[in-house]
Design a binder for these strands. Sequence first.
DNA 1: TTTTGTATTAACCAAATGGTTAAATCAATT
DNA 2: AATTGATTTAACCATTTGGTTAATACAAAA
Lengths: 202, 202
Amino acid sequence: MAQDRNTEELIIEAAKKIFITRGLAGARMQDIADEAGINKAMLHYYYRSKDKLFEIVFNEAIGKVIGRLGMVLNQQMPLLEKIPAIIDNYIDGIMEAPYLPMFVLNEINQQPEMFVQRLKSQQHFPNVLQFMKDIVDAGKQGTIREVSPVQLFLNIVSLCVFPFIGRPIAQGILQLDNVQYNMVMEDRKKVVTEVIFAWIKV
Amino acid sequence: MAQDRNTEELIIEAAKKIFITRGLAGARMQDIADEAGINKAMLHYYYRSKDKLFEIVFNEAIGKVIGRLGMVLNQQMPLLEKIPAIIDNYIDGIMEAPYLPMFVLNEINQQPEMFVQRLKSQQHFPNVLQFMKDIVDAGKQGTIREVSPVQLFLNIVSLCVFPFIGRPIAQGILQLDNVQYNMVMEDRKKVVTEVIFAWIKV
DNA sequence: TTTTGTATTAACCAAATGGTTAAATCAATT
DNA sequence: AATTGATTTAACCATTTGGTTAATACAAAA
């Protein structure tokens, strides 16, 4: 099973799967090796230690989670077009890897210190400050209602992310099956945009 | 250090602290014992196994997280009063124990099967179906706009919960210190109510 | 005071776990 | 074919970890 692709990649793929589903503390090196179909020693041969391997997986994950946000945020575009663009793009990103936000959030909660450093060195670090300035300006201009830019940012992200990280509990409470919940998620982009615009429209 | 209170309670308190901060996989029985200031054997003497102890902590946690929601949801009250009541009450609950939702959500993601059973046997199981029926009725009556009750529910919960579970990352991106972020959370009740009403008002 | 049942502890145990190593395999080079 | 360097593996190691046990401390009842 091992020879098909590059062993290094094979390990990373397996590590992603195990770390993301079980977390750093719950992941077992043996399970990663099994998943990759190789000997456990290879993990250390290529990546030294569990922590080193985890760091690679985590960095890529956080890049995807906040990077996607930053990409749209930094684009030059009128605010009233940018907001739906952010929502569409961000929900698309989450749907591609619905388990990533939970993984990232949880590991960050486990060690916030290590994270803060990493965040600022992140190339995709979202330039939120500019975005918030735009919101304030638009408010003064009367393009939108004058709202707290921080609250607006939190609202957008909350509405986009939570339905995915809270999926098991929400699905349980709402008593929906997978197919039904998927349909609800399909509508999300439209709904979130609607909600945000209802709140900020003059 | 052990004699002050009942040893059993002492253990539960310590177990809560350790399990909630580190999760099931990351928690160490020795750490719980140390936290309680007692011998590790006492944990097994009173609660058999790590899993049994965890179950107690987890059940209480999930009770708080979804129970609080159910309490308000099941109250007899006009919809337009009930929605702000839900929001106020739920955010109050989260602020009392901001780490609980993350803990519950994460552990549920780890073993969704075990959870689904527990959910239905939960005494505080929120009667969301009735609440959703009320929303549909109110829509038809014209009290509110006709919106998907499922989406409304998701919106409320998302806006309330996410800013707390995503706090480290949000605070990092927004570059706010603890005091500033606390102030933002203070305003949350008002903002969430505002957003929801803006969306559902006719 | 003695007895008796409960609470508590130190020492211990077996399994799991991250990590290492020495030998073996493989592939390219000479 | 022989050499050489990288890759891979089985076996091993030290530590950690959940759990047990036998002996002890303690408190209430007799």
